[in-house]
Design a binder for these strands. Sequence first.
DNA 1: TCTGGGGTCCTAGGACCC
DNA 2: TCTGGGGTCCTAGGACCC
Length: 395
Amino acid sequence: VTERRIAHLDMDAFYASCELGRRPELRGRPIAIGGRGDPTRRGVVTTASYEARAFGVRSGMALRTAAELCPDCLFLPVDFDLYRDYSRRFKAALRKITDRIEDRGIDEVYLDLTGLEGVERDRGAWLARQLKNCVQQATGLTCSVGLAPNKLLAKIASDLNKPDGLTVIEMDDLERTIWPLAAGRINGIGPKSQQRLTALGIHSIGDLAQASPALLQRHFGERHARWMIDCAQGRDERALVTESSPKSRSRETTFERNLHPRTDWHALAAELARLSRELARELALRGYRSRTIGVKVRFDDFRIVTRDLSLAQPTDEEVAVRRAAFECLARIALDRRIRLLGVRAGTLSHRDDPITREGSPKVNVRKDAATQGKGVAAPGQMAAQQHLPLFDEQV
DNA sequence: TCTGGGGTCCTAGGACCC
DNA sequence: TCTGGGGTCCTAGGACCC
């Protein structure tokens, strides 16, 4: 059994780099990409150039906050079409080296270099350099590559020397290089898990490796604990996932100001209709049909509520999507101002798929505040019911 | 007016079926 | 009267990732 050689490739400050590729005269200036490119409006930074990062600007930060930290920062609106184009180009270029590629979003991939020509010479470092050259030639952009015996370590490695990095990690490097890192550097350990680990006195990956398995099991369950221990030991046997079909599609909007469920009902309903229309059009365009339509609401206190509805038959039609979406919304008790509204289509099948099941889905009504019918209906609920016919018939 | 938009996967209870 | 054990589907929420 020969050890695998897995690379993780991550584009550097991707959105910002794409913008600079199109407007090189901005090079050297602090720039931040996010929202509509207007820091007085609602939105967050998706990517900051390294010059902007020097001022403390980070992704996820409110645009307004970024503008305060870095008054000279240039703000640009998100242009997904441009980034998708760059994304296609670097992935197509890499595909000439190997087709064993796992797509991890717009700016990341894993590649399995095991057995490729030239890989045995220096454990893959030369090939990893070729990956970087290849991306550079195809896009003019830099990336960072991690090379390791598995995905877990390759991912950690690619993050160690950014930007324009190339980092090789072997099993022998585990204690020296990996164990000192925070547990949150493991892909899959996010803020919540990190906080729970900290409460147990576990900070680094090394702490995790030496923690009592029984303790971890008590706090995280058998499966999760097993997984964390394996990660801390650098163990990861997962193969690359080179093919996958989408599970869901969605559309959502954060309003410029929080909307009142009653006084702003017209705007809310119009937005739900618009999102439904866009979603249906996308389904039809891509040849998908959905059997589960859902709605998501984020209130002004950031609480998120979702409602799903399974349909008798999969659909890609605007009217069916909209009707289901309004039914879902009517089941949510709208007792606060609304910040975000979204529509989701799940349980996707393809136009050409054979029909796998027929008949109606099970009726399974969950008891929640809006469906119990006790007492007075919430204002939003009444509004939703009142306006349902209007938007159902509107084309 | 701090906190986007688009995804995946997991869990868990109840319904329902065998 | 009391007692089962899967297995799947549906729904809601939550963690996490890019």
